[in-house]
């Protein structure tokens, strides 16, 4: 379980170089660390129909779940350079995951909806993760990870790829990312940026191991606000919309 404090922003592609050099100066980190991820978004297969009894609060929710693994671009494709804008004619191709050898390591992640309140200066929420490092099935001819999700009761409903860089400012992580979605089927899977204007998403967060550690949460919040102030001329860090981050499944009552 991790308690995450988060601020987000976005910059146009043209600000990338300036942003990177500013963050290098701010953090003293000469080379940012790469982020490269593939995510499957999954949803519970069954419909949850809890019995509503008067006087009894039903606290059980159904949640969407992310399955995250590392993304290594196809061997055929040239190495992607995040500093270069992506044009519709560019070919970013990834291998099909479950046909050309499978992936062993997947992190299953479910996040709570961020804490509510009018005076939230940062977004705060609890994230639960557990990492699968090996899987096996008695079902012949099916990838055991997909079979595992199936048996667990989850369906894959969407997928996306993320590439970017991260800086470390004390305990705060600053991520500058581009999201990619599937374009069309060719040999392998062709990708395109989710946002064709080539802008970057920025996430600044501080992870705190215990959600009960009030002191560390308030210190973390201060650190994020300090960073927000430092970077305000470069980009405006904001609290993300809480409702967009709600992972609960809406079931008809």
């Amino acid at each position: 379980m991790v308690h995450q404090l988060l601020l987000v922003s976005t910059i146009p592609h043209s600000s990338y170089v300036q942003t990177i050099s500013t963050l290098k100066a701010l953090t003293g980190q000469l080379a940012p660390q790469e982020i490269s991820l593939y995510t499957m978004l999954t949803k519970p297969h069954h419909v949850f129909k809890p019995k509503f009894e008067p006087g009894k609060v039903n606290q059980i929710e159904q949640y969407y779940m992310k399955c995250v693994t590392t993304w290594e671009p196809s061997k055929k494709a040239t190495k992607m350079d995040i500093a270069e804008p992506v044009f519709p004619t560019d070919e970013i191709v990834v291998d099909k995951l479950f046909t050309n050898g499978y992936k062993n390591v997947w992190t299953l992640q479910i996040a709570d909806i961020p804490i509510a309140g009018k005076n939230q200066v940062v977004s705060a929420r609890t994230i639960f993760e557990s990492t699968l490092v090996h899987h096996h099935t008695s079902v012949d001819g099916k990838d055991s990870m997909l079979q595992f999700l199936d048996d667990l009761g989850y369906d894959v409903i969407n997928q996306y790829w993320v590439n970017g860089v991260q800086f470390f400012y004390g305990d705060v992580v600053i991520e500058i990312l581009k999201l990619f979605i599937r374009d069309d089927e060719k040999e392998g899977i062709k990708l395109k940026p989710l946002d064709s204007s080539n802008s970057f998403q920025i996430r600044c967060y501080r992870n705190i191991p215990k959600s009960t550690d009030i002191e560390m949460i308030s210190q973390g919040t201060k650190e994020l606000l300090k960073l927000q102030e430092h970077l305000k001329n470069l980009f405006q860090l904001e609290v993300p919309d809480r409702m967009c981050m709600d992972s609960r499944v809406q079931n008809p009552v």
Partner: peptide, 23 residues
């Protein structure tokens, strides 16, 4: 290192008990 996990993982039995209770 590539960012797929925060590094703060829950044991799978408590993950199921806390977040997959509907299933």
């Amino acid at each position: 290192n590539l960012g797929a996990t925060t590094g703060l993982n829950d044991p799978f039995d408590s993950f199921v008990h806390q977040k997959l209770q509907a299933a």
